[in-house]
Design a protein around this nucleic acid. Sequence first.
DNA 1: GAACTCTAATACATAGTTGTATTTGAATTC
DNA 2: GAATTCAAATACAACTATGTATTAGAGTTC
Lengths: 202, 202
Amino acid sequence: MARKRLTREESRDQTRLRLLEAAAITIAKKGLAASSVEDIAAHAGYTRGAFYSNFKSKNDLFIELLKLDHADIQQGLQEILDAGLSIEDTQKHLAQFYVQAYCGDTSFVLWTEARLQALRDVRFRARLNALLLEKRDVIAYFITTFCKLMGRTLPAPANDLAFSTMALIDGVRFFNESMPNELSDESAQKLLSAIFSATFFP
Amino acid sequence: MARKRLTREESRDQTRLRLLEAAAITIAKKGLAASSVEDIAAHAGYTRGAFYSNFKSKNDLFIELLKLDHADIQQGLQEILDAGLSIEDTQKHLAQFYVQAYCGDTSFVLWTEARLQALRDVRFRARLNALLLEKRDVIAYFITTFCKLMGRTLPAPANDLAFSTMALIDGVRFFNESMPNELSDESAQKLLSAIFSATFFP
DNA sequence: GAACTCTAATACATAGTTGTATTTGAATTC
DNA sequence: GAATTCAAATACAACTATGTATTAGAGTTC
């Protein structure tokens, strides 16, 4: 079967995408600093030439990577929100989405890596914070809507609660990932539910 | 004023300590991977010779650093616990301790860095998890005692709650550090209180 | 299909990092 | 106070990374 002959643009996009995918894996595995440009390019099946032809720097690529991941999550959340399901179904979808989008793959590690980078690099921080604030807003909106539906008042400003939700999910996730025997998937799930219930429906 | 002439052991200990201090600063600033042995040694006022004469590797030093920090925190918590103060005073001391021990300095960054390292390096993970479990146990004990005093039942296993407490504190701390305008010290403090109250005294 | 344009490979110059092997000089021992 | 021991400096060799400058080759344009 003849492979389709790619136009220049298609070919370039393919290269970019492959580089991004390879970067995600490499960075998740070895860390941002320890992943050389050569590593990434080689894993994608290219040389450094392809890398520098597509990205200005490693940080540049990294931000792009985060943006893509962010957009995926964003979209997923929005869809659940817009579906207009019952509360139970929403919760169910949410849990499912969380497991799929965030647990399985490299996403979690990348965002942790990004946090550290943000603490060090002012520009990077600005770019990352913008993404995180977007995420916060979606979650805050979600929390507000949810509480209104349940006829409850919020125990704290929605934005702050959104932060704590993100914090909690990430933090619990780390323990769960790092010592699954001490904190099983099931425990983690239950724990989060318990705290959310307690916090939002006291 | 004549500087005391150091014995060999004193001199060695001094070197070790200075290297550890320099490492804490350097690693917090640039990250573990990006901190070269030379960097660390130079910041401490030595050459790499001194480093390799005192530590087997960078990871070796890093774990030692974490152990020291851990011991400090451990001891601080234990002291508050053992003081047998009233609930209010305990809470007050706890908040104060948290701010002092964890907020001001490099501690937070180091532990985040350690987490990432742990996700990648099995041996490192084992060593780090041991430290984290110790910390968890102290907090779990604290939670249990506290709830008993208040005549409440725990909404989840104490160990799991301890994890979530650690997770929440770290996570909120990150947002607070990374975007102080969006989540002020005060908000962070209030938020944590609100969630803890809701969780433990529903 | 010849001239061109752009992507990715290659070549290169520079610089940084690691760990060990050896040396120096100050503390210790007798 | 000479011999010794040990911490830290220095020297060294191998390796890795970065970014740019140049080149090759496949798409594009006319």
